[in-house]
Design a protein around this nucleic acid. Structure first.
Length: 802
RNA sequence: GCGGAUGUGGCGGAAUUGGUAGACGCGCACGGUUCAGGUCCGUGUGCCCGUAAGGGCGUGGAGGUUCAAGUCCUCUCAUCCGCACCA
């Protein structure tokens, strides 16, 4: 028997698939379609075991569906703009394009070496002008619709590096991760997408997708809808009506003070050095520090806000426990019924007035009563006294609405998506600033606005692109006067919000894509990726699709019909990542054990949707399994006769395995147990290698393992005298062959197993009882005792209760 | 604090609908093949008592429902993840 040479066999079949364009698909409808997609990789140095997991899951599903009569689209590309390449450029002076393209080349080689079945003809890289050209084009459509706009918003700013920092660049102690300087907050004009217009749709349409509940919960939480009322409080001193949002209009009579967030726009108008000093300190406070603070801080402004419901003058404070970006940035404080307000009132010796009386409870103003309970009623609330809290809240809101001082309101935690970045390595935003015309879009026929080369990638108070003066200074497209280009670039989440659409029409040079192929393939039937993208990426992509649908560019509202969230591959219980510095790459293992063993191993480690610890010894075990399969099947191919199976135990086992593996891959995504089932079949086959059933079992094992170990399977399929396994129909279990000859029925006495019967399936209840009672062992335990009940579950068990 | 998950042999895990707990693999032990082997083949392997037959215990912990619970209910402990002063 020849020995199994993984490298030779894997290389051979990869070439065969390439030459046959085995996984290239047309946009013509032939069979029912299936779009299988994994989140595209960021091309950092190399692949790691986390990538191996996601892409092998997608590959198994792809190969399985292709053999089950589906026309499967399975593309791959690169999310190639982004911060790491830019940081590397600053550090090493290598142009991000060079390092990125080198990485893409390397990763592509690894991916091909893994034997993943991609339609490479549709591949894309987001830094390719042919890609970002159409992103700029779509941005201009958003701009026309008013869905992209500019506004001032606070950013984290490093005074030393003179640049905006991403959250992940700020350390827990509030310093810059690169230089250690204390990070500041600074208000800057930035670009935003009006995703909040779609908040309700994003929430509602979650009902229409087949995602894990936990992922939906995260999105709901992120969108954060809450119902309540918006109420106007008047501050006479400023001649302003200040709106506040509250979920508890029923507690309005309990408001005893009023709080503005330090960043609230009106705070700047308060002439008080004490307030200015507090605001300055609050701005310098780091998120972590602010969150860790248990004591409430704040300062009285000298102003008063009028409670519209009773005309009371409430002292106005500025305090950093009120957030500027939630609600309206101002609150009515009801210490009796909100823990935070209560803590503040305690610290500042402010009045506490209880207005909701707990059921069977007395008014107790020494604690905050925040929960809701059946039977609570309003007190100290004038004409609303005695009403149940919820009803009272409605009545109070109605009264205010009638007076023009309030309205029912829905508030979302979701905020508009700030997408401009003061970075070099990103998609240029195609607008020009003209003194005369303002913000002027670059005309469609001048796209793409190419990313120019610059000398230095380091920001110097202005984005790196500002250095490219020849590029920056352009005539205004509208008036022809002097103008300058936008020097900020887009967030890479924009790049990944529509790449799955571009795959459907990847080489289109006159539009982002045509509607027909996109409508044919979408929505993505199975999207696979990590939970870390469950909120941002997957909300932005959903938003993008909804907008394009409103623009008439496509005919669906949700991009990802089903989502499979894969677990993390850990090493030392820490998520494997470049950042954690615990990367183990597949290249070395492919070299030593072969791609098939690596593919099997990553899926055999455990359930694919749970975290799994990487272990090296198990790759060896999988290599052993492949070798064993190789030896046994090769022998059977040489010696066992062909022809219809005889229908013996081995043939039955083969059919049972078909049923199990089909269900595990097709319905349960239980990739580990499918492998175990094939192992069982191979174990039985190795004990009985002669006869037509053996040949049938061998063919079945090879056919079923093909999604996992396509190379070895293909070679063995050829040895069995068959060809083109990648497109061979998936085997079908014969229901008649799933019938087993005997079943084992445990017989219990008082719930303890005392004997086991071996009977044909379908043995009726009466016969089971008779056989059970006939058992000597059972009789010993019954020992003349009276049987009170007899429980029989045909096919499962018999239980005598005494 | 709120939300989401997870706890099963020495280890990774299986048990899909309340019905035989521990499939499959690793490791380990013993035996065989081999010049040798980090190869391959076979047998055994949850824990305790027992030479054995057999018996008892057993799914983080404590209760409960049920003829029957890893699975359902209540409480509790531990670990991980997400959001975090959300008005």
């Amino acid at each position: 028997m020849d020995t199994y040479d993984a490298t030779a066999i894997e290389t051979k079949w990869q070439r065969v698939w390439d030459d046959a364009k085995a996984f290239h698909v047309s946009n013509e409808e032939t069979q029912p379609k299936s779009y299988v997609l994994e989140m595209l990789p960021y091309p950092s140095g190399t692949l790691h075991m986390g990538h191996l997991l996601v892409y092998t899951i997608g590959d198994v599903v792809t190969r399985f569906r292709a053999r089950n009569g589906r026309h499967v689209l399975h593309p791959q590309g690169f999310d190639s703009f982004g911060l790491p390449a830019e940081n590397a450029a600053i550090r090493d002076g290598v142009h991000p394009r060079d390092s990125t393209e080198r990485n893409i080349e390397h990763i592509t080689r690894s991916m091909r070496r893994m034997g993943w079945a991609y339609d490479w003809s549709r591949s894309l890289s987001t830094h390719d002008p042919e890609y970002y050209r159409w992103q700029q084009w779509q941005f201009l459509r958003f701009l026309e619709r008013g869905l992209a706009y500019r506004k001032g918003a606070p950013v984290k700013w490093c005074p030393n590096d003179q640049t905006v920092l991403a959250n992940e660049q700020v350390l827990a102690d509030g310093t810059c991760e690169r230089c250690g300087a204390v990070v500041e907050s600074r208000v800057m004009e930035q670009w935003f997408f009006r995703i909040t217009d779609y908040a309700q749709a994003l929430l509602d349409d979650l009902e229409t997708v087949d995602w894990p509940e936990s992922i939906k919960a995260r999105q709901r939480n992120w969108i954060g809808r809450s119902e309540g009322a918006e109420i106007l409080f008047r501050i006479e001193e400023l001649d302003e009506d200040i709106p506040v949002f509250t979920t508890r209009p029923d507690t309005l009579y309990g408001a005893t003070f009023f709080v503005l967030a330090p960043e609230h726009e009106l705070v700047a108008r308060i002439e008080s050095s004490e307030v200015r000093e507090y605001v300055r300190r609050a701005a310098a406070k780091k998120t972590a520090e602010r969150a860790a603070a248990t004591e409430k801080t704040g300062v009285f402004t000298g102003l008063h806000a009028v409670n519209p419901v009773n005309g009371e003058q409430l002292p106005v404070y500025v305090a950093d426990y009120v957030l500027t970006d939630y609600g309206t940035g101002a609150i009515m404080a009801v210490p009796a019924h909100d823990q935070r307000d209560f803590d503040f009132a305690t610290a500042f010796d402010l009045a506490v007035r209880q207005v909701v009386r707990p059921p069977d409870g007395d008014v107790d103003e020494t604690v905050a009563y925040v929960e809701h309970a059946e039977g609570e009623v309003l007190v100290n609330s004038k004409e609303f006294d005695g009403l149940p809290a919820v009803e009272g809240g409605l009545k109070i809101a109605e009264k205010l609405a009638a007076e023009g001082r309030g309205r029912f309101a829905v508030n979302y935690r979701l905020r508009d998506w700030g997408f401009s970045r003061q970075r070099y390595w990103g998609c240029p935003i195609p607008v020009v600033y003209c003194d005369a015309c303002g913000i002027v879009p670059v005309p469609d026929d001048e796209l793409p606005v190419l990313l120019p080369d610059v000398e230095d990638f380091k920001p110097k108070g202005v984005p790196p692109l500002a250095q490219a003066e020849d590029w920056v200074n352009v005539p205004c497209p509208r008036c022809g006067g002097a103008a300058t280009r936008e020097t900020e670039t887009m967030d890479t989440f924009v790049d990944s919000s529509w790449y799955f659409l571009r795959y459907c029409d990847a080489r289109n040079s006159s539009a982002p894509f045509d509607r027909a192929p996109v409508d044919y393939w979408n929505p993505v039937d199975l999207y696979i990726g990590g939970v870390d993208h469950a909120t941002m990426h997957m909300i932005y992509a959903r938003f993008w699709v909804k907008v394009l649908n409103d623009l008439g560019m496509l005919g669906f509202r949700e991009p990802f019909a089903q989502f499979f969230s894969n677990g993390w591959v850990t090493l030392g219980k820490v998520k494997m990542s470049k950042r954690a510095g615990n990367i183990v790459g597949p290249d070395d293992f492919i070299e030593r054990y072969g791609a098939d063993a690596c593919r099997l191993n990553i899926l055999f480690l455990g359930p694919a949707n749970e975290d799994m610890e990487w272990t090296e010894t198990s790759v060896e075990a999988m290599a052993r399994f492949v070798r064993r399969l190789w030896t046994v099947v090769s022998e059977v191919a040489e010696s066992a006769p062909a022809g219809d199976p005889e229908g013996g135990a081995l043939a039955r086992k083969a059919h049972a395995t078909i049923a199990k593996v089909t269900d595990d891959i097709g319905r349960r995504f239980a990739f580990n147990t499918a492998i175990a089932a094939v192992m069982e079949l191979v174990n039985e086959l190795s004990r009985d290698r002669a006869g037509r059933d053996a040949r049938f079992a061998a063919e079945t094992a090879v056919s079923l393992i093909q999604p996992y170990a396509p190379h070895a399977a293909e070679e063995l399929w050829a040895r069995l005298g068959r060809e083109r396994l990648w497109e061979a129909p998936w085997p079908v279990a014969d229901p008649a062959m799933l019938e087993v000859e005997t079943v084992e029925i445990p017989v219990q006495v008082d719930g303890r197993i005392r004997d086991r019967l071996h009977v044909p399936p379908g043995t009726v209840k009466e016969e089971l009882i008779a056989l059970a009672l006939a058992s000597e062992r059972v009789q010993t335990y019954l020992d003349g005792r009276e049987i009170e009940r007899t429980i029989v579950v045909p096919g499962k068990l018999v239980n005598f209760v005494t």
